[in-house]
Design a binder for these strands. Structure first.
Lengths: 158, 158
DNA sequence: GCGATATGCTTTACGCGTAAACTATCAAGG
DNA sequence: CCTTGATAGTTTACGCGTAAAGCATATCGC
């Protein structure tokens, strides 16, 4: 901080950030838009369904969902409220710990998820097809490095 | 759609999407968090200030701002309401067309922007420093291809 | 001119993100 | 026991995104 020299790299860094954010926003817009038009869903709802569908008995405590989605606890509550109202999930109680509420996929939620997943995979294939396999893996690798770096910086500060 | 063959590429495509979205969300979280702690701002507010700062006389009609930010007109109104309340911008009227409201940076907004910009550049340098120059450019290139592909697909459908 | 239409912005209703305060429950140590 | 502290969820207040309806003003074709 004492030394405020301008490394040439910095300009590309800001360009990189912009490109990254815009690209992600565009992608999210694309997916959410398609989900909205087809089913009632959004990308986040899809993510919830995907997590539940992968879970051992298609159910998870709320807190584990919150950990997988990058979203705060408080938000999950309302999200699940709406999804429960739409009949995609059900909330039950944990046998041993009365604090936790267990979220389970309904039949309806499961089939809804399967339809969405198939479409979603198709779209992503169309989009990432523009990069070859090796470029896609390259992209994944670079993004991973960025993410790890951010995590590291945040930990330093803490 | 008739042919639902599973190309091996598809799996990497979905992985790529996830990685992209998570990385971007993480980055936005990082920047917004730092801006919030330091100044009152957020990444979006910063973007508004940046656009105004680059404009010929530090002012732009609302509609042009809306075009540069990826955000709907309706949202801009409230965003500018808050920023005006915070004394960062001022709204005036257009000399010829009484429909348009012209947004201008205040002194306060300009200095606030300069501080934010310096910090922001520093953070991005720290983060993207983990990639070399060539990898950063590579990342920018790949993201550009993805974005162009999405635009192309959307246009096809339209 | 003047009605139809387009444009710029605001308003409204809502989805989804955060942080922070609150409630209920559980687990541990005196 | 029973306080003390951690943990699971909910609630609240708010920022910021969308779409759609509404209002004022311009503009175009008659």
């Amino acid at each position: 901080m004492a030394d405020s020299r301008q490394e040439p790299q910095y300009k590309d860094a800001v360009r990189g950030e912009l490109q990254l954010l815009k690209c992600a926003k565009r992608l999210e817009q694309f997916s959410t838009g398609r989900f909205r038009d087809g089913h009632g869903g959004s990308l986040t709802r899809f993510d919830v369904l995907a997590n539940l569908s992968r879970a051992p008995d298609r159910s998870l405590p709320t807190s584990e969902l919150a950990a997988n989605l990058i979203s705060s606890q408080g938000n999950i509550t309302r999200l699940l409220d709406r999804m429960e109202a739409d009949g995609l999930i059900e909330r039950g109680s944990h046998h041993a710990d009365r604090r936790v509420s267990v979220v389970a996929l309904t039949e309806n939620g499961q089939t809804s998820f399967e339809n969405m997943a198939a479409e979603h995979e198709h779209w992503m294939g169309e989009i990432f097809g523009v990069l070859g396999e090796s470029e896609t893996r390259q992209l994944i690798r670079l993004l991973g490095k960025i993410r790890a770096r951010i995590d590291a910086i945040d930990e330093e500060q803490a």
